[in-house]
């Protein structure tokens, strides 16, 4: 057998290898998906989603995940810029703290949040006394989701800003624009694709978050926590409708965000 480039057919090991390896991963992803979602018919899905608990869980997920993503983006993008552009004492430590939530298991992350802002901690009790409970509330869900998902947008924003030629920012400054205007008009749009990828990842991670949320806010239930409850109560078939709904919602949101976020001149039309 000859494994070198075959000019006649165009097929060779060099071309086939990535296709074969990539195909293997895709199959590994797709088969469980198909096996899982073909267990219940359309009727099963509709009836599964018609219960008030299921609807409430989806609504809670749709309320909390965008808020968590927005909070993570609002706080994380400036931090990503700072890490990309500045050198300062303790930068390594800051970088380590940023990836910490990715390293610890979500369950552990949840217990960490609990020890910091739980009902019987100074912060938690103060918030509770003014009517904003930080645990077992939608705020608690947002706290858990943000903790686990924010590193994605910080890390990608940092990479995005790092890829923007610093001279472009200097050119903007020399054309009379201050640092904030330069960030807004030049750095942010040019790092936009990377940041958008980070936002997408953060949203996907937030809406699917289960481990930390279960510890910080077991109730009100989000779609993933409801799935956990249903699985223990009635097994695999009971979780299919909610999982499907979660998947569809996530895909719709992600496609919309990606479509809206194309940058003229940078992205191909």
């Amino acid at each position: 057998m000859n494994w070198t480039r075959d000019s006649r057919s165009g097929y060779s090991l060099e071309r086939l290898l990535p296709v074969l390896l990539g195909g293997l991963v895709l199959v590994y992803f797709a088969v469980p998906f198909l096996a899982f979602f073909t267990r219940t018919g359309v009727d099963g899905v509709v009836s599964g989603l018609s219960t008030p608990e299921a609807r409430r869980a989806i609504r809670n997920s749709l309320l909390t995940a965008p808020v968590s993503t927005a909070v993570a983006t609002l706080l994380g993008v400036p931090l990503g810029y700072l890490l990309a552009r500045s050198s300062f004492r303790g930068k390594r430590l800051v970088e380590a703290v940023v990836v910490l939530p990715l390293v610890v298991p979500p369950l552990v992350g949840g217990t960490m949040i609990l020890t910091a802002v739980g009902r019987f901690t100074p912060v938690g009790s103060a918030a509770y006394s003014v009517g904003v409970p930080l645990t077992d509330s939608l705020v608690g869900v947002v706290l858990a989701q943000t903790f686990v998902a924010a590193p994605f947008v910080i890390v990608t924003a940092r990479a995005g800003f790092g890829a923007v030629d610093e001279r472009l920012e200097q050119a903007s400054r020399s054309l009379g624009h201050g640092p904030l205007a330069t960030f807004w008009h030049v750095s942010l749009p040019l790092a936009g694709r990377a940041i958008l990828a980070g936002v997408v990842l953060t949203f996907a991670r937030a809406i699917g978050e289960f481990g930390a949320t279960r510890i910080v806010a077991y109730t009100p239930q989000t779609a993933p926590t409801r799935i956990g409850v249903e699985y223990r109560r009635a097994g695999i078939d009971a979780v299919v409708p909610l999982a499907l709904a979660l998947l569809v919602v996530t895909l719709v949101v992600l496609m919309t965000v990606l479509r809206l976020g194309q940058t003229p001149g940078v992205d191909p039309p």
């Binding site: 472009l168 050119a171 020399s174 054309l175 624009h177 003229p264 001149g265």
Partner: peptide, 22 residues
């Protein structure tokens, strides 16, 4: 003084045209 107050125009060695603007 910061660059934005100096009224100094600069053309750099490599292109610094903003790629997302016409």
């Amino acid at each position: 003084d910061p660059p934005e107050t100096r009224s100094v125009g600069v053309v750099f060695q490599r292109s610094t045209l903003f790629p997302h603007m016409t």
